[in-house]
Design a protein around this nucleic acid. Structure first.
Lengths: 340, 340
DNA sequence: CTGAAAGCGCTTACAG
DNA sequence: CTGAAAGCGCTTACAG
């Protein structure tokens, strides 16, 4: 009774493919076929199998399936945090495309330290995902090497790099910073300051800002203001600091909309007239940006499209289709409103 | 050479546990033990194994591990959408706790239709997750039955229900609506309107609102205003509609902060004085709520804690520890600011 | 259109 | 402290 093959249920109490086959009067392989390539099974057989599946409430064990087929049906996605609405949109786009293709998402969160990320990626790779995506670029050489060795199709996103591990889908943060700063210059601003956090992405935007100043023969209105966290409150505080540091500043370019909205609110609280006295520009185009008054001039970023496109390219890779472009620049768009 | 056991690498080209064992001069079982219960292995053996792991870049195949051990090391999480910052925080809390325990998150997105959700949950269950959580309560009887049959530890979240499939972690939306409406009544408001979307959660909040009105002997200032989407713009339009429908309204209770912020902005645009002429209250306590002026009076919700707590309880279940409370009410808090 | 055999890469008792 | 044997529940060629 407790013999190896004598039971009619798996040890977890759940029906196995053998149980379905027995009930349908056929074999495991035909059940498997019915579930995956039904057109290759005779209609009557198919009917009996599906009935048995229904009766038993059979759910295929995808670990066994993955092991046998070497296709896990999983795409792994690594994000710094999803408690940030711009990243959440990327995850959303990625997940939607993956879901339509019948793939599941394994979510890895937290890229605080390179070591922690290495461990996370190793663990995810152990799941044999069919593809892997990450918000941001992987810098640590050991981690890059690891990912290259696994040969899992991989997309880095958000930042463009000339040297992706496999694919990269994003936009140029430098170019976005450059374009917005040029816009400010074109609007007659001459004392332009930068407010941003202390990460790679903000640094790239700042480089664009500096480049635009240089080509216009301008100096920064103040040393770049660095915030420790990205919040409306941090934006407020940064603007206050800026006005103390450089009272004559005539434009503030904020590395993202949350900071810019904070800055805008601070201006209103303190009667700083925007854009007359001070222009304020952001980056990201959050919904709140267009609802404030003055409405925020900003850069629209294809957050959702980044996720969706990365997923599509990875699906193509998984299907063995050629991917002609390893570096995909989805661009951005200056959205001119009232604040700058 | 192409024989079954003659190769030194798995078919995917990746080293297997056998390869590590061979290099370390031991057997698969000892390698497995070294990786999972190192204290049971002699130091010298352990050293050799870890060295071999390092040399080969060995990453255990977790599908094989899951199949053999019947523990997948995965927790599945189903969300309606994560492009909504309150849900994103719940996911974040869940994922952090799970990650600390070494479990991976399988993310299922989309609960648009009960049928689609049933398919999604079936697919997720096939992965044999050690536990399953969902934002929101599962209503469809077939889906509830399916989940009950699988015997996977399961947490429904956000909404409290008297009859959870297994566990439920959340707060009472009805009680929150009741408390905020009582607050408005206590502040002397008598013509109180409700603005909300058309889902279960908003309906529960509305019921609380109606209950508070009834106990105060009041009538709604207008039929509940229903929005089709949750956005600042929708909040603006809803407020405009409300003022047309019931010009004498003296308070607007919005089912969530996004709508409330939209309403507040609309008031400012049209010179409706808040709170003098109209009180505006929200629910959710987004960061923007405290930054606007007037700052938004709202209900603080433990979004992040909901995710974290659900994960903790599920981990306890997985570890076989008794969970004494199946219904966990995390409560809420009225945050009184300037708008109401 | 259907099936027998072998194998995917691990872990679980059980011995010693 | 270490290992031989069996098995987890599927799918993959290969036949017929």
């Amino acid at each position: 009774m407790s013999g190896t093959r004598a039971r009619s249920r798996g040890a977890g109490g759940r029906p196995r493919i053998e149980d379905v086959a027995a009930l349908a009067g056929t074999t495991a392989i035909t059940v498997s076929r019915t579930l995956r390539q039904p057109q290759k099974v005779a209609p009557e057989t198919r009917r009996r199998v599906l009935e048995a599946v229904e009766t038993l409430g059979y759910i295929p064990n995808l670990s066994a399936s993955a092991l046998a087929s070497r296709r896990s049906g999983i795409m792994a996605l690594v994000v710094p945090t999803i408690a940030n609405s711009v990243f959440a949109e990327t995850v959303d786009g990625f997940s939607e495309v993956a879901g339509r293709a019948g793939l599941q998402i394994l979510l890895g969160q937290g890229t605080y330290s390179p070591e922690a990320e290495h461990r996370l990626l190793t663990a995810l790779a152990g799941r044999q995902p069919d593809a892997l995506a990450r918000i941001g670029v992987v810098r640590r050489p050991e981690t890059r090497a690891l990912l290259q060795r696994t040969r899992i199709p991989m997309a880095e996103t958000w930042d463009l790099t000339q040297d992706p591990i496999d694919l990269v889908v994003g936009f140029s943060n430098r170019a976005a910073g450059l374009a917005m700063t040029r816009h400010l210059v074109a609007r007659g601003r001459r004392r332009i300051a930068f407010i941003g956090s202390d990460d790679d992405r903000a640094a790239a935007r700042r480089h664009g800002y500096e480049e635009a100043l240089a080509e216009a023969g301008l100096q920064p209105a103040a040393p770049a203001i660095r915030v420790q966290e990205i919040s409306y409150g941090a934006g407020r505080r940064a603007l206050r600091a800026l006005l103390q540091l450089a009272p004559e500043v005539d434009a503030a370019f904020c590395a993202n909309d949350v900071l810019a909205v904070g800055a805008l609110l601070e201006c209103r609280s303190f009667g700083v007239s925007v854009p007359d006295r001070l222009a304020v520009a952001g980056l990201g185009d959050l919904e709140i940006a267009q609802e404030l008054s003055p409405a925020l001039t900003t850069v629209r970023i294809p957050s959702r499209a980044i996720g969706a496109r990365a997923a599509e390219l990875l699906l193509a890779r998984v299907a063995g289709e050629p991917v002609d472009q390893r570096i995909v620049d989805l661009g951005f768009e200056i959205v001119e409103r009232e604040s700058a």
